[in-house]
Amino acid sequence: MTDISDILIILFILIGAFFSVVTAIGLIRLPDIYSRTHAASKSATLGVMCILIGTLIFFLTEEGFFNSRIVLGIFFVLITAPVGGHLISRAAYNAGVKLWDKSIQDDLAKKEQFEKEKEGSRY
């Protein structure tokens, strides 16, 4: 059965595998935890979702059964993975992990400084 569906399945699985490899390389190569969570939460989400879509199309065309659990899985990964990345990087910032030494701007630190001064002037 070499149809459009086969090409679509191969395309989706390959794109997913490619983005997973990109995530792994990003985790090794990037300098600090914030750019690493950027790589991990973004491209890993897309990679896993592409592989799941490929699996869904495979079972739909080859075996003719619509696996709703995969749809649920796609939705679940789409919602939870970015929130996981957000929580990891926020926990790292609150624990005082330094930014990369070549980064030029840290607005959150400025905001906290400003709030501390406001508290100080009130009392």
């Binding site: 659990r69 919602i79 929130v83």
Partner: peptide
């Protein structure tokens, strides 16, 4: 005091999906 609005909003949606899936299982 920390602001957990993202975590709490996502939890409201996700916990329903998890409970439905567990009943399905």
């Amino acid at each position: 005091k920390t602001n957990d609005v993202i975590l709490q909003t996502v939890t409201k949606i996700i916990s329903f999906i998890i409970i439905l899936f567990s009943i399905h299982l």
